[in-house]
Amino acid sequence: MSQEETNNVQVIPEDKEKTKKIWKVAAILAIVTIIEFIFAFTLPRGIILVSIFLGLTVVKAFYIVAEFMHLKHEQKALIWSIMIPTVLILWLVVALMVEGTAIFNIRY
C-alpha cells in the first residue's frame, strides 16, 4: 500500500445519512428477532403462534432483500424478474401442506 498507488484515486467522503440508514435496518432486524424470542417463550404453541412467526420472518426477509440486497432501489424490470418466479415457491408451500395433511391422515 504505497503512497503512489492511492494518490490518484479520489475517495468520496462518507455520507453519514447512508450509513445511518444501514444501521437502522440492522436495528429493525435485531428487534424483530428479539420479539420472536419473547413470543417463543410467552405465547402458547399453536397455529396462531406459527402464523406470527412466519409473518415476522417475511418482515425480516423483506428488509434483507429490499435494503441490504438493494432490490427496492433497482429497475422495475429487475424487481419483477426476481419476484414473479417466487410465486412458484408459494405454490409449493400450499401443495405440500395439503399433501402433508393427507399423509398424516393415512398414517394415524
Binding site: I89, L96, E99, G100, T101, R107
Partner: peptide
Amino acid sequence: LITYGLIRYSHP
C-alpha cells in the same frame, strides 16, 4: 424447507 414442513406435519 418445505419438505421439512411436510415431514414434520405428517408426524404426531
